[in-house]
Design a protein around this nucleic acid. Structure first.
Length: 885
RNA sequence: GGGGGAUUAGCUCAGUUGGCUAGAGCGUUUGACUGGCAGUCAAAAGGUCAUCGGUUCGAUUCCGAUAUUCUCCA
């Protein structure tokens, strides 16, 4: 009760968004909930999901009973992104006042603990007592039942609501609105939504809020969804009761702020207003004057949050997958700024300081990475503005053609090409067209779009069958830190079809196989029993399970198997992984503490390390990094491994925690001397095992991000052997024992002068030949005729002479013949005077080429032909003379 | 994962029934004009037309593969 009083006082003045968020967390903490931090918005390790799109994502494996919860009651504020898949709000953003790409979801959870009664009671209490929302404006919906699923109405929830709400404010909801399912299969159950009517008194008198619930009214909105997970839907479609029932709730933070602060739009709350004010200030436009400008500002404010947080979570704009989604959002924002706020140059990045003011406290990652976020956004803006330029250029060309052809509709295919190949937004195409009085064939555009979509959909088909349980075992243990082989049993398996090929996914009760994560690739190896040996060619993680990928399943799946990791390969991978830690550590020493890991890939052949840094590393810096890492290797520092230590303890040890990474309560720490990192990977026992470290390349992969690729151990031996071989073969060719560079330099120099000499000599030769030819000009019918067979090194040589003579001899008729590589070659050159009279080298060459069994052609004044009969050359030349005589 | 496009001088780009011995602008160098800055004019240098293979008398152009890169769909 004290708790409620405390907030009553605060609520006398309007609560800020920061206070509202904190009040939620404090309230549920007072109800024995454990407050956890937001998972990163960008999802790693779940192939079905690119972004966190609901508060429950990070607890998915608990609902699937693949992980034991470490607290039965949990609450948090989760960063969410809805831009793809089932929930795609991207196109809605800005047009209305309450859709967002990124938003915060406040949620409380019960894992087999409390159920409907408490969830409803606390939901009600929080909204009415703490947030002080008007009880008369609240509505609840309950699931009305469904005949197809043989489900009855959720009278349980209805009865609890009756304690707080009059019956006419409790509404029935359909399966679509009030039955929540995680996917086609899996945990599901009825839900109960709380809606609020935020309209003016006057409006409310005209029409009852009851009529507007779930009718997409901007001010009669759902603010909290209480999901009661009590069933599991099997692949057959059948529902079965879950032994443990869960509560999963989600409340849109921005909507709550709107309700509490008495605004009519999410964008009018203090979550967005500072950003919108800044946009207005920078662009010179005013918010609230025209619809177009308002929409643009809302789009920009919304999208900017998304982009900034994604980058902070480590997801940079890119041209595929999640990075591509981010790029598209950024471009959408730029496009609105470009068209409606007349921003022809980059400006989004200037909004970051304001965003940090609003959200930096709750989410420190954006503050800490300010410089990087700014730089990346600016670079992206500039590159898109460039794409727009190109697109406008191409579109203008197309419009000129339309004008020339007196058309007024632009072909949909062309607009689609503009979009598909050049990234030019179709709505911008339409806008530019309409400004100039043209129309777009929208239907044609959509048709092409659909063709592309179908094509993509058809190729994606990756089907997985349902898991088949073989052997019951709750916990799948990873024993690979200590062993590379183990006696295992199959707990479950399934068949999958990937690119038309069958493969099997197998889960063991325990396993020495490391699943791909943290940049380290999955182990390979085999498992065997009863004389049957099956190769494991990859190991992946799915919902915390370690999935072994094979081409077949054993004949008898109930045996105990010997599972063996390819340890040679694993050792090499481990060397690269440990070297990555040393590299990270040394980079921070050499170029500064701002070096932040942005990505990493470790396999048996190489290591790749991406990190935040703004300039190219100098040659000296690279050498220094290599020297220091190699120094640490030679010190042969033993590995200190700490499993299951609390995260705070790890931080005290100086572990470099990665921002945007989500960690459980306990972590594993890997330490080599001063290098301390949180890491789940496989490492060497002492740094000496790495052998040696060599940087192979250093490059930029995005604004502010650089990539180092390096090799260790055996790979360096290969590398050195290759180098040696190359040098040896060069020495052999040059016939020198050393000072190769000097010798090569000399050769290049010589080559250059020789080339010049040859050129000169050829010119001399040409001059000589020309003189000779000119002396033997025959006059035939007023033409200066030269017909000759020459020795020539190549066709260009004859071409050169032909063009020269054309400039020197008037009324020229010139035919050359030569034998090149055993084939016959002919050319005919005519002076301009003859061409003007109607002669054509083309027709002449075709006629005479018959003699050499060949064909040819060219322009009216110069034509060439080739044939396989050199013996016909004399006849061809003779024929040539006949033609003109 | 699947589709489309691009790669031509240091930079930005032109270059269609395959043939004009590859062009423009900017930049670079040189020269002239001017007292200097700057500029104007003139000239020159600079290209394995991404790489490899194929078709052809002939390929920057057509075809195939590779590399790099952009872009769209999923």
């Amino acid at each position: 009760m004290n708790f409620i009083k405390k907030f009553n006082l605060i609520n006398l003045i309007i609560m800020t968004s920061k206070e509202i968020r904190q009040a939620f967390l404090d309230y549920f903490e007072s109800k024995q909930h454990k407050i956890v931090s937001s998972a990163p918005m960008v999802v790693k390790g779940d192939p079905t999901l690119m972004f966190t799109n609901a508060g429950m994502n990070q607890f998915k494996d608990i609902f699937l009973e693949l992980r034991q919860p470490d607290a039965k009651r949990v609450a948090d504020s989760q960063k969410c992104l809805r831009v793809s898949g089932k929930h795609n709000d991207l196109e809605e953003v800005g047009k209305d006042t309450y859709h967002h790409t990124m938003f915060e979801m406040l949620g409380n959870w019960s894992f087999g603990d409390y159920f409907k009664a408490e969830a409803i009671e606390w939901g009600w209490e929080f909204l009415t007592e703490i947030m002080k929302l008007d009880k008369n404006r609240l509505y609840a919906t309950v699931f009305e039942g469904d005949i197809a699923d043989n489900l009855e109405k959720d009278t349980e929830a209805e009865n609890f609501w009756k304690k707080y709400l009059p019956e006419d404010r409790i509404l029935n909801g359909s399966k679509k609105d009030n039955f929540w399912e995680m996917g086609e299969t899996g945990p599901c159950g009825p839900c109960s939504e709380i809606h609020i009517d935020l309209r003016t008194q006057e409006e409310r008198l005209k029409i009852s809020g009851r009529e507007l619930v779930n009718k997409d009214h901007p001010l009669v909105i759902e603010i909290w969804n209480l999901v009661f997970i009590q069933f599991n839907r099997k692949q057959s479609g059948e529902l079965e009761q879950l032994p443990k029932k869960h509560v999963d709730t989600g409340m849109g933070f921005e909507r709550l702020c709107m309700a509490v602060q008495g605004k009519f739009s999410n964008y009018d709350t203090d979550v967005f207003q500072p950003i919108i004010c800044k946009i207005a200030e920078l662009s010179g436009f005013k918010y609230g004057v025209s619809d177009e400008v308002d929409i643009a500002m809302r789009v920009i404010a919304d999208h900017f949050r998304t982009i900034a947080f994604s980058i902070a979570d480590g997801q940079l704009p890119a041209n595929e997958k999640a990075g591509y989604v981010i790029r598209r959002i950024l471009r959408r924002a730029v496009r609105y700024a470009f068209t409606f706020l007349e921003q022809k140059t980059s400006f989004l990045h200037k909004l970051l300081p304001v965003l940090i003011e609003v959200m930096g406290e709750q989410y420190p990652e954006i503050t800490l990475q300010q410089q990087l976020i700014t730089k990346v956004i600016e670079e992206e803006e500039l590159s898109f503005l460039n794409t727009l330029d190109t697109g406008i250029h191409l579109l203008n060309n197309a419009i000129e053609i339309l004008i020339a052809e007196k058309e007024n509709v632009l072909d949909g295919k062309l607009a689609f090409t503009l979009y598909d190949s050049f990234g030019f937004p179709p709505d911008l195409t339409e806008l530019i067209l309409s400004e100039k009085g043209f129309m777009l064939d929208k239907k044609g555009f959509d048709e092409h779009m659909n063709v592309q979509k179908d094509r993509s959909r058809n190729t994606i088909k990756q089907e997985t069958d349902e898991w088949i349980n073989v052997y019951d075992d709750d916990i799948e243990e990873f024993v690979g830190y200590d062993r590379t082989e183990a006696r295992v049993r199959i707990s479950r398996y399934r068949k999958a079809k990937v690119r038309g090929k069958d493969e099997y996914h197998i889960v063991f009760n325990l396993t020495p196989f490391y699943a791909e994560s943290g940049g380290q690739v999955g182990d390979t190896g085999y498992f065997e029993a009863d004389g049957e040996k099956i190769e494991i060619f990859d190991t992946q993680k799915e919902h915390n399970q370690i999935v072994h990928v094979t081409k077949k399943i054993p004949g008898n799946i109930n045996l105990e198997f010997r599972a063996v990791v390819n340890s040679k390969k694993q050792k090499l991978t481990a060397a690269n992984h440990s070297a990555t830690h040393l590299l990270h550590f040394v980079l921070r020493k050499v170029i500064g503490e701002h070096v932040e890991q942005k990505g990493s890939l470790v396999d048996s052949e190489k290591l790749r390390f991406d990190f935040a840094h703004y300039q190219k590393l100098t040659v000296q810096q690279i050498k220094e990094v290599e020297n220091l890492v190699n120094g640490l290797i030679r010190l042969n520092i033993p590995l200190s491994e700490f499993r299951n230590i609390p995260i705070n303890e790890a931080k005290d040890m100086g572990a470099m925690a990665l921002f945007g990474e989500k960690y459980g309560d306990t972590v594993r720490v890997i330490r080599f001397g001063e290098s301390v990192e949180l890491c789940g990977g496989i490492h060497v026992n002492a740094t000496g095992e790495i052998g040696m470290f060599k940087i192979i390349s250093e490059s930029a992969i995005a604004a502010g991000i650089r990539r180092i690729e390096a090799i260790t151990a055996f790979e360096i031996e290969n590398y050195i052997n290759d180098l040696e071989n190359t040098i040896d073969s060069i020495k052999n060719v040059l016939k020198v024992p050393d000072k190769i560079a000097q010798k090569v330099e000399k050769l290049v120099e010589e080559n250059k002068t020789l080339k010049k000499q040859v050129e000169l000599m050829q010119k001399e030769k040409i001059k000589f030949i020309k003189q000779d030819l000119k002396a033997n000009i025959q006059e035939v019918n007023g033409m200066n005729v030269i017909i000759a067979k020459l020795d020539a090194p190549n066709a260009d040589f004859l071409k050169q002479i032909s063009f020269d003579l054309k400039g020197e001899v008037s009324n020229l008729f010139l035919t050359f013949a030569a034998e090149l590589n055993g084939k016959a070659f002919l050319s005919v050159m005519l002076g301009n005077e003859l061409v003007e009279k109607g002669m054509n080298a083309n027709t002449i060459i075709r006629e005479i080429a018959k003699e050499i069994q060949g064909g040819g052609g060219g322009q009216p004044f110069y034509a060439t032909a080739g044939g396989k009969n050199p013996k016909g050359i004399e006849a061809a030349l003779k024929k040539c003379l006949e033609i003109i005589s």
